[in-house]
């Protein structure tokens, strides 16, 4: 991304050399004034929404035991934090920098990066995987004298999805992708189902 100035490792090395505390997850290098501006608005709206919902919960006996008491306080503090984030970003970068917007161009720019497109595609594929697997209810058993082979909805959906993701990201041959996806899904299914006696999703 254009805004991703340096990688996490680079930022970590820089902070180590300077002896600056960056925190456990140190996300500052990923941030930008525009992102912080959007975040402060979304957080404030979330706070207001939480407060409205909290008030709607009513007070069964006394205000002190009201189910919405802490949610209300949490919502109110979120609004204060959103204001704090806004003020901090404004002080650091100025209002002009915060409000600078390319409108639709920003989205076009975002989609212009190959990483962004790959991320969005991955999200869609995982979404489809989760939704389809949720509809599955199948567990076929093939009994032999020494072992009962099972083929459930989990294997049926997981193999093609992992195959597709491997083919797209790994870019190996069709045979390699097929062998790896089948091998790993069957291995995981056997370990979870037979080794640890855990029911698999999509297997009824």
């Amino acid at each position: 991304m254009a805004e991703e100035k340096k990688s996490r490792i680079e930022a970590d090395i820089e902070s180590l050399e300077k002896g600056i505390f960056t925190g456990e997850e140190g996300g500052e290098e990923r941030s930008s004034p525009r992102k912080d501006f959007i975040a402060s608005i979304v957080v404030a709206l979330l706070g207001i929404f939480a407060m409205i919902l909290a008030v709607d919960l009513g007070k069964p006996e006394s205000l002190y035991t009201a189910p919405g008491l802490l949610p209300f306080v949490t919502g109110a503090s979120l609004i204060l934090m959103a204001i704090g984030l806004f003020v901090k970003t404004k002080r650091r970068y100025g209002l002009e920098e915060m409000l600078k917007s390319d409108g639709l161009q920003a989205i076009i720019n975002y989609l212009g990066y190959i990483e962004s497109r790959r991320t969005l595609m991955l999200m869609v594929v995982i979404f489809v995987y989760v939704m389809v697997l949720g509809q599955m209810d199948m567990d076929l058993r093939f009994k032999t004298s020494f072992y009962t082979f099972r083929f459930s909805g989990f294997e049926l959906v997981s193999i093609p999805v992992i195959f597709f993701i491997l083919r797209f990201f790994w870019r190996s041959t069709i045979l390699n992708c097929f062998l790896v996806s089948t091998g790993i899904v069957v291995f995981l299914a056997v370990v979870f189902r037979d080794g640890f006696q855990i029911l698999l999703p999509g297997s009824g």
């Binding site: 960056t22 925190g23 140190g26 996300g27 941030s31 975040a39 934090m81 704090g84 984030l85």
Partner: peptide
């Protein structure tokens, strides 16, 4: 502790 010099983000 998580957010380093931007604790407000950690609190949010």
């Amino acid at each position: 502790m998580s957010a380093g010099d931007s604790p407000i983000k950690g609190w949010i």
